[in-house]
Simulated scan of single mutants.
Amino acid sequence: MESTLDQVHINFDAASLHTLNIALALVMFGIALEIKWSDFRQISQKPQWVLVGVLSQFLVLPAITFVLVWAVKPMPGLALGMMLVAACPGGNVSNFMTHLARGNSALSVTLTAIATMCAVFMTPLNLRFWAGMYPPAAEILEKVAIDPLEMARLVALLLAVPLIFGMLFNHWFPALSKRLSSFFKIGSLLFFAVLVVLALAKNWGIFLEYIHYVLFLVLLHNALAFGNGYGLARLFGLKRKETKTITLETGIQNSGLGLLLIFLFFDGLGSMALITAFWGIWHLISGTGLALLWSRAKEDSGL
């Protein structure tokens, strides 16, 4: 069954890959239009907030994922897919969900910016480190011979460059950025959502046939990601707004980037693509549900 799952061919051609590249860059540019240098100054007064967010995303989540993989022992491709998701930075929609949950929006966009820059180095580093310590996944890495520098270059082009350009554009043209930000935020997310829906529609039969292999893993992994963010924030004594923000930033991963890396570096390995794609669907459902729960909870509810 392992070989069958790995040989599953996801209908995702070169044109779709190119479109996904554009979508990821546009989403990041749109987010950057809302980031002000004053946000960094404000957050710099509370550096522990950023420290907890970065630790949660790039240290604790990959470590928890490694422990989960050792405990559950999924197929090697599924294990590697889980590690790749954990190695990616927070997902772009976390900013919207933080706003919906009445979290700290300034912290959310700041963490997005910092995590994006960190991901240039931390995504390939975490994938190489944690997967290298799990022999079944390490075997796949050896076969594909990934160049970490090439992966870092791609992450920089897709995420860091649009982020920097967006922030510079906002700095130079603040009035225009304010008018464009709503369009880009909604338009780029809709564009990305339509792309996901179309990709899912093209692969609906495959999705239904193999969903039972990844359903439990994704639900458990995503729950642990949210729990990690929440627990670490509470452990460090963060207040309610910041706790919600760290939780969402950790539980919403950039699975779009993960899929792109799978198709470019792993030749679209079926098991990796399936679990990453379902992550991309499920974290939107779970994240939205959690954000709505928090949006309706009273401030003194303790949630």
Rank of each mutant, 00 (worst) to 15 (best):
A160H: 04
S44E: 01
N254G: 14
F265T: 03
I281E: 02
V109Q: 09
L248I: 15
L190K: 08
L260Y: 04
I206F: 04
L195Y: 01
L224V: 10
N203I: 02
T247D: 05
Y213S: 02
Q45C: 09
I43Q: 09
E150H: 12
H212D: 14
R41L: 15
C88M: 11
F216N: 09
L55A: 13
P47Y: 10
M28I: 05
L257M: 08
L163Y: 06
L284D: 15
G251E: 14
T110I: 08
A199K: 03
M83K: 00
L180R: 01
S108K: 01
A14R: 08
F266H: 08
G103P: 05
I31K: 04
P76V: 07
K185A: 14
L284M: 14
L159D: 00
F263W: 04
F12D: 02
L208V: 11
L159Q: 05
I43R: 00
S105D: 06
I246P: 02
A63P: 01
S301T: 02
G91W: 03
A15Y: 11
L220S: 11
L293M: 15
L125P: 07
G302C: 08
V8E: 07
I285R: 09
L259K: 05
L68S: 07
I281W: 00
I35S: 10
F169Y: 13
A277Q: 03
M133W: 10
A175V: 11
D6A: 00
M117P: 02
S38C: 06
Q48I: 09
L248G: 15
V196K: 13
I22R: 01
V197I: 13
K73S: 13
C118R: 02
A160P: 06
T123V: 11
D300I: 08
E139G: 00
T19G: 11
L208S: 12
A71Y: 12
T110D: 04
E34F: 07
K143Y: 05
D13P: 01
V194G: 09
L217Q: 03
L261P: 01
H9G: 08
S44I: 05
F169P: 13
A63S: 15
I285K: 09
A223R: 10
S181L: 12
I211C: 07
A145S: 13
S182G: 14
A193S: 12
N92P: 04
S56V: 02
G166F: 04
M1I: 07
A277S: 15
G166H: 01
P135F: 03
W294R: 03
Q42W: 06
A25Q: 13
L84V: 00
S181R: 11
R240A: 13
G77W: 02
Q48F: 15
F191N: 07
G53N: 06
L224E: 11
T123S: 15
I146T: 12
L59V: 14
L235Y: 13
W172F: 14
T250R: 07
S16P: 05
L59K: 06
L303G: 03
F278V: 12
I275E: 12
M83E: 08
V197P: 12
M151S: 12
I164L: 14
F278A: 06
I10Y: 07
L149E: 07
I31M: 15
L293K: 11
V120S: 05
T19F: 12
I164W: 02
F226M: 10
L26G: 04
F207K: 04
A63I: 04
